[in-house]
Amino acid sequence: MAIDTQIGQELKRKMTCIVCPTGCQLEVEKNADGKLSIIGFQCRRGEVYAENEITDPRRVLTTTVKIRNASLPLLPVRTTEAIPKELLAKAMEILAQVEVTAPVRTGDVIVTNLLDTGIDVIASRDMKRTEDVA
């Protein structure tokens, strides 16, 4: 559980690290001078995660966009990197309007510079044209 306790400028937060399946239980403490103390991580990535989670929480967005002329009506896509968490909903709305046409290859850029993040949305699988599928 992400539990926040705020006392003046000090902040104490418990969180689950989502970097890997281990799911370490982290505790972050922000002192009055703004310094962070982090405990509970089993690797360096957990420490970085906790720090980001306080300063700039981000998530990789995985979803679908519509695709024409393919054996399926949807193409799975992802952001190349994690985007700010508060942009997820807006990004979904934008991607709901996107429609592509097969064929598509894994890694093809579907949307460049999503919401000015400098991060692209790419296809996460191949999708052949229906006519090309025997």
């Binding site: 679908t64 979904m92 709305e93 309007q97």
Partner: peptide
């Protein structure tokens, strides 16, 4: 609904 319908 069709996919993306709610988002639109």
């Amino acid at each position: 609904a069709e996919a993306k319908f709610f988002l639109k």
